[in-house]
């Protein structure tokens, strides 16, 4: 007897905007009666498979994304690849996010049907609601049900962001707490940190432990308390974007320029910028932060550029040297 699957399975690649919107997407789809399939964390095979499908010039995060799409093929009925143009008025996303559904189709022809809502807040609320409704139509004809689902999704997103901002959690910690509540108590972890480090960069670089060689855990093991963009109020970030760059242009100005300026002025001992090789927005945004670090602030700043060729040893050497330097500075200050 042929098995009739009641609940359509939606594949969500654990890459790019997953780190920012996963709770929202998951809630939305589950309220519409779908089942969400998440790809497993990045590993070498995922990255190699993704890299083999796109031209060499493509940036690392997109290669990772393609790898995750490939790993989901056959495990889901739909692939969720939104084309997000803007999340705020007059502030746009990088071209790669817009071309993502079409690039996925070109790179992974065997991909199941792609759910590709056009999210463009710049065009106005009406268009946005229509896009959401169109997305919901794959699962239900009832507009009210879609409305309820999107309201629940928005709520989930809000509480996710609040959790990170108020309690100083990283997206990984916040998601773990949201989805596996009760199973594992989230302790505050270590509390005897000897110094503070701020990390700036896109969430999909900071929290993907394969591409950044476990940067966060490594820093914590070395005794650093890590601060990230998510822990800062958006208003403060925006103020620094205006101060450093004259106003936001990219959606990510907050997480690079804003967070960079913010932490360079705060009580942290050093700031590490993490960028991907070949990333267009990063190439210019990080330059602004670096100039600010050089001119206005006496804080150490290090830039780590990631690509699929960088070797772990070289990466670690730089990291260790940077941390040694920070500890020495601290000693000199104390003495």
């Amino acid at each position: 007897m042929k098995e009739i699957r009641q609940r359509p399975r939606i594949g969500i690649p654990r890459a790019l905007l997953y780190y920012e919107y996963y709770p929202m997407w998951k809630t939305f789809f589950e309220h519409l009666g779908a089942q969400v399939v998440l790809s497993s964390p990045t590993n070498r095979q995922v990255l190699a498979a993704g890299s083999s499908r796109v031209v060499a010039e493509t940036c690392l995060p997109v290669k990772v994304f393609m790898g995750h799409v490939l790993s989901l093929v056959g495990k889901c009925d739909y692939m969720f690849v939104p084309a997000i143009r803007s999340m705020e008025k007059r502030i746009h996303n990088c071209s790669k996010f817009l071309g993502l559904p079409d690039m996925t189709k070109a790179a992974v022809p065997e991909c199941p049907p792609i759910l590709e809502p056009d999210i463009d807040v710049d065009k106005g609320k009406r268009e946005l609601y229509q896009a959401i409704y169109k997305l919901g139509r794959h699962f239900t004809w009832d507009p009210l049900k879609v409305k309820k689902a999107s309201e629940a999704a928005w709520q989930a997103h809000q509480s996710y962001q609040a959790q990170m901002c108020l309690r100083g959690q990283t997206p990984l910690q916040a998601m773990e707490e949201m989805f596996t509540a009760g199973e594992r108590g989230i302790g505050e972890g270590k509390s005897n940190f000897s110094f503070n480090i701020a990390l700036i960069g896109h969430p999909y670089l900071l929290y993907d432990e394969h591409v950044n060689y476990r940067l966060l855990p490594r820093l914590e093991e070395a005794g650093a308390r890590v601060f990230t963009t998510e822990m800062v109020d958006k208003g403060e970030l925006d103020a620094f974007v205006t101060k450093l760059a004259g106003g936001p242009y990219w959606t990510y100005d907050d997480e690079v320029v804003g967070a960079g300026g913010y932490y360079l002025e705060r009580e942290v001992d050093g700031v590490i910028g993490v960028v991907a090789f070949g990333c267009g927005p990063d190439s210019l945004m990080v330059d602004i932060v670096q100039r600010y670090a050089k001119k206005r602030s006496k804080k150490p700043f290090m830039l780590l550029t990631l690509d699929e060729h960088s070797a772990e040893t070289g990466f670690l050497t730089r990291l260790e040297a940077f941390l040694d330097m920070i500890q020495r500075r601290k000693k000199i200050k104390c003495a």
Partner: peptide, 27 residues
């Protein structure tokens, strides 16, 4: 140009079109 955002997308998509014509990409 090298690392041009929109053209990288074009470069990824161009080889898959059914309309077949040789393309030489110069970076």
């Amino acid at each position: 140009p090298f690392t041009c955002l929109p053209e990288v997308i074009a470069q990824n998509i161009m080889p898959t079109t059914r309309e077949n014509i040789p393309v030489l990409t110069l970076i």
